[in-house]
Amino acid sequence: MTPAKRTAPDAVDVLLIEANHGDVRLIRELFADAGIANDIHVVYDGDAALDFLHQRGEYADAPRPDIILLDLKLPGRKSEDVLATLRDRPELGSVPVLGMTSSPTEATIARASGIDVDACIHKPLDPTEFIDIVREMNEFGVTIVRKQPLEGMSN
């Protein structure tokens, strides 16, 4: 998968690390329905995520992500490995990471085992929860680019 070109000069690069193709489609649809012009780069496992972050192989031209949405239950290489790489690289250590999990129990276990995410999001996402996610991105200093106002938010 070749990294996408920026859709807008001030668009934010979102790295979505998600194994479930249905969840990827849903997240893309939520971004589109909300009129969000950010660039979403998708990888489906931990190995591809590390290649993206290290700009290796097919990801040699990958941008540095501004925010990462990380499935906490990846197949193969674990989410913890991806996070360790992020936290060990000075240029990536400050990138906000929103961990995505299918249950509150998984979020609790993730935190207890030292998974260093900035926030946890529960899947499946619904449009109302998505607005909350956008607000969280703004709280982390990542200002999303919107083509239109997002319902329930003021500009």
Rank of each mutant, 00 (worst) to 15 (best):
K73N: 14
L69D: 02
Y59A: 08
L92V: 11
G99Y: 04
R77E: 15
D61M: 04
L53E: 06
A110Q: 07
E129Y: 11
L70K: 02
R89Q: 11
D81S: 14
I133S: 03
D88V: 01
Y44I: 11
L50P: 03
L125F: 05
A62M: 13
T105H: 02
L69T: 04
I121F: 06
R56N: 09
L74E: 07
L50H: 08
L83Y: 08
V117G: 00
D66I: 01
T108C: 08
K123F: 05
A49S: 07
I68S: 03
L125P: 04
L86P: 06
D45L: 06
S113W: 10
P104W: 11
P90E: 13
T128M: 12
F130Y: 01
D118R: 03
A107F: 03
T128G: 12
P127H: 11
S102P: 04
G93R: 15
F130V: 03
V134K: 06
A112F: 01
D81I: 02
G114H: 13
I115V: 11
K78T: 15
V95T: 10
S79G: 15
S94Y: 09
G46C: 10
H54G: 09
V42E: 09
L92N: 06
E58H: 07
P90M: 12
M100K: 05
P63I: 00
M100L: 05
E80W: 13
